Computed example of a mutant assay.
Amino acid sequence: MFDIPSNKPYLIRALHQWCTDFGFTPFIAVFVDERVEVPLECVKNNEIVLNLSTEACHQLQIENDWISFQARFGSIPKKIRVPISHILAIYARENGQGMSFPYDPLQARGLLGKDAPKGVDEKPKPPRPSLRVVK
C-alpha cells in the first residue's frame, strides 16, 4: 500500500484561485514555530496572518510542501516561507469564506505515518482560528 498525499495544498491553491478570480483578498493564518520564516515581530500567540494577494506578495509559489513569496513589512522586503503543515486557514478577508485546517504537530515535524518517538509532546497546539462573516 502507498501513502496518499495530502489534499491540503490542492485545497489551498483552489481557494487562493477562487479569491483571486472574484476580487477577494486571500489571507492565510499560520502557526509559527522554528520552521516558519516570517518577521517575528509580527507574530502574536504563535500565529501570523499573511495577505496572499498579488498586490501584497511577489513570486508566490504554492507548492505541495511549502508556500513561499516575498513581501514588504514596514517597507522592508522579506522572504517568507511557510510549511503547508503550518497553515491553519485560508479565507477571503472581505467575507471570511474559506477553510480551516487542523494543526497536527507530528505532521508538522514530518513524523506522521512514521513511528513517533516516545514522549513526543504534542503541545503547543494553537487555538483554532475563528472565522467570522462580517456583513
Rank of each mutant, 00 (worst) to 15 (best):
R35P: 00
C19K: 04
I84H: 10
V32Q: 06
K118P: 08
E41D: 08
K8G: 13
L15W: 09
Y91K: 01
N64R: 10
V43Y: 11
L88T: 04
I90T: 08
I90C: 10
R128P: 07
F73S: 01
P77Y: 04
Q97L: 12
H58M: 09
C42A: 14
G98N: 04
K79Y: 12
A108D: 15
S6G: 01
A56C: 05
A71L: 09
S53R: 01
V82K: 03
V30S: 03
K125R: 14
L106G: 03
T25E: 13
W18H: 06
L40Y: 06
I67A: 04
L88F: 05
V120Y: 15
G98F: 01
M1H: 13
V120P: 01
R109E: 13
D115C: 01
R13S: 11
P124V: 11
A92W: 10
L131D: 09
K79Q: 12
V32A: 03
R109G: 05
H86L: 01
F2H: 10
E37Q: 15
V43P: 10
P102V: 11
P39D: 06
G96F: 02
S130F: 14
P9N: 01
D121Q: 06
A89N: 04
R128D: 08
F101C: 02
C42G: 00
S85L: 01
R72D: 05
N7C: 08
E55P: 00
G113D: 02
C57D: 04
L106I: 11
L50K: 11
A108I: 02
G119A: 11
V134A: 12
L60Q: 13
N45F: 09
P77V: 05
V32S: 03
E37N: 09
A14G: 03
I87R: 03
V32Y: 11
K123P: 00
S100C: 09
P26W: 07
V133I: 14
P39F: 09
P129T: 11
I90K: 08
D121I: 14
P105G: 10
I84G: 10
P102C: 06
L106P: 03
K125C: 05
V30T: 07
S75K: 07
A56Q: 12
S130G: 02
